[in-house]
Design a protein around this nucleic acid. Structure first.
Length: 503
RNA sequence: GGGCGGUUAGCUCAGCUGGUAGAGCAGUGGACUUUUAAUCCAUUGGUCGCGAGUUCGAAUCUCGCACCGCCUACCA
């Protein structure tokens, strides 16, 4: 790893013939006046114009004599002597401009001919339809609002270099409609989740991202340092323990949508910072959350995609039906014919199967842990349709309540969709003494070298000692959910500025 | 972390067994008053990712490095 991650203090001026050409155009514009005016008032959006007038026929539109004032970036330009067409793009979409000498005069028209793709312009004019029926604006006034110095990617193929799409997302958003669409869906989905919860009486809160004891998940944290306090701080790996402190405080329904940070690998499914929704409701249990999750995801898909059935990487995924609910051994045998409930409860059989698959097991692994390992190896990726997996072993669920009938497992579920974990929820452990005990075993594991194990958080124990009502809580990985909704294969398609190595 | 692939003009890409770099778009000049990736004519533009090596000669072969992508491993 390079130590020199600081940006260079000296600006590197990269240039080429095209940029030079545009700079000289800009300097001529400067001589003629301010080339970056700020007094243009846009009145109409491209999409609104299409919605309002798109269905009018040519003759009716002429009679209406409707005018429009638009602004946007020049995406296409076709100059034909005394007449020109330009396609401009604003936040809503694109609209075509028709520019001719009759409309704006010879001089203005020749000036326009030297403007470039990427320039931002403002235009006013009258709506009409061309002989091929395209709704356009016959321009009677045209202004250059911002000169663009860098050439846009090729107008037909766009930007296909994925590295550049992620590093220069601003260019990607200009030229890649699907990228723009993905982030619009992301925004909408988060808004819908927020509304879904607030309408049900949940309070949205923000808890610390910088924590002196990182908790709430088994993960490697980022470490940082506060100078004035001279103390080590961690970026949070989860908000869980703070949200439950709030439940102790009497906020009986809380949620947070915010970033978590985990110092682990980067892949098509992992970004070091990612967005989680966590929500907690007192006097509910994990079964209630499963029902709530079904409703939430169904409504979300309908609002974002227009249907409870979505397509993900060739699979049709149905959020309309009640999701299957299976224990790990049920899921394993349902998706793998060679396993039955008998042999899945046979310790020796499980050990042999895992050994065959070169999965590391410890002598301390109980039956539940062995089933979990076999589940992850053989079954997880086969859970395409939404499926709740329930009853996780206590060892891997240090914050979940033990099941009353079988204390070796917890009242917990994970929701799998398209072979991936999307949500994780459980009835919260509110027995402070049990929690203290589990923190102790986590702290011991950490002392043994497990750097993903949890810290002992004595303030959290103190909070539980005041009494936390019986509570159910759930976390949903927003980025992966958005991947589903946008049919994205990589998490980088749904994070605006994904983490990259320095250029 | 491991394996495989990629990096050539601003963008999209060719470039064979080594012989000194090409197209389309964009740009520039010209023609064209309803185009649709407009068209037509002319034309500018390159440290072939970086660094070594082999060779008379390297975009091309070898090695190292950097970055990206895909698969894989841990995790959400």
């Amino acid at each position: 790893m390079s130590e020199n991650n600081n940006p260079s203090p000296v600006e590197v001026i990269d240039t080429n013939q095209i940029i030079e050409e545009r700079r000289s155009k800009l300097s001529k514009l400067r001589e003629a006046g301010n080339p970056f005016p700020n007094d243009f008032e846009r009145k109409d959006l491209a999409q609104e114009i299409h919605d309002k007038y798109g269905t009018q026929d040519k003759e009716n539109l002429e009679e209406l004599d409707a005018s429009a004032i638009v602004a946007g970036r020049i995406m296409l330009k076709r100059v034909m002597g005394k007449a020109s067409f330009a396609t401009i793009q604003d936040m809503s979409g694109q609209i075509q401009l028709y520019i001719n000498n009759a409309g704006i005069g010879d001089e203005e028209h020749s000036a326009f001919k030297h403007w470039d793709l990427g320039d931002i312009i403002g235009a006013s004019g009258v709506l009409f339809k061309t002989k091929t029926g395209e709704l356009s604006i016959r321009v009677n006034s045209l202004r250059l609002l911002t000169k663009s110095l860098r050439p846009l990617p090729e107008k037909f193929h766009g930007l296909t270099d994925q590295e550049q799409r992620y590093r220069q997302r601003y260019v990607d958003l200009i030229v890649t409609p699907e990228a723009k669409r993905n982030f619009q869906i992301r925004s909408k989905a988060i808004q819908i989740l927020r509304t879904f919860l607030t309408e049900r009486g949940y309070l949205e809160v923000e808890t610390p991202m910088m924590q002196s004891i990182p908790g709430g998940a088994t993960a490697k944290p980022f470490v940082t340092h506060h100078n004035a306090l001279d103390m080590q701080l961690y970026l949070r790996v989860a908000p869980e323990l703070y949200l439950k402190r709030l439940v102790v405080g009497g906020f009986e329904k809380v949620f947070e949508i915010n970033r978590n940070f985990r110092n682990e690998g980067i892949s098509t499914r992992h970004n070091p910072e990612f967005t989680m929704l966590e929500f907690y409701e007192a006097f509910r249990d994990y079964r209630y959350l499963m029902n709530l999750t079904e409703t939430m995801l169904k409504e979300l898909a309908e609002a974002c995609v227009g249907s409870a059935q979505i397509t993900y990487q060739g699979h049709t995924i149905d959020f309309a039906q009640p999701f299957q609910r299976l224990t790990m051994s049920e899921a394993i045998s349902a998706h793998n014919g060679q396993f039955s409930s008998d042999n899945l409860n046979d310790l020796e059989f499980l050990r042999a199967e895992l050994a065959k698959r070169k999965i590391t097991c410890f002598s301390t692994d109980e039956i539940g842990m062995l089933q979990l390992k076999l589940f992850e190896e053989t079954t997880e990726e086969k859970l395409i349709q939404p499926t709740f997996i329930v009853a996780h072993p206590k060892d891997v669920s240090p914050l979940a309540r033990s099941n009353d009938k079988n204390p070796e497992v917890t009242d917990r579920f994970e929701l799998f969709v398209a072979g991936r974990e999307i949500a994780n929820g459980f009835s919260e452990l509110n027995d402070s003494e049990d929690q203290a005990q589990r923190f102790k075993s986590q702290a011991e594991a950490k002392a043994q070298g497990d750097d993903e194990a949890m810290f002992y958080d004595s303030d959290y124990i103190r909070a539980l000692e005041y009494g936390m009502p019986p509570t159910a809580g759930e976390g949903i990985g927003i980025d992966r959910l958005i991947m589903l909704l946008t049919d994205s294969a990589s998490i980088r398609e749904v994070i605006l500025f994904p983490q990259m190595r320095s250029e």
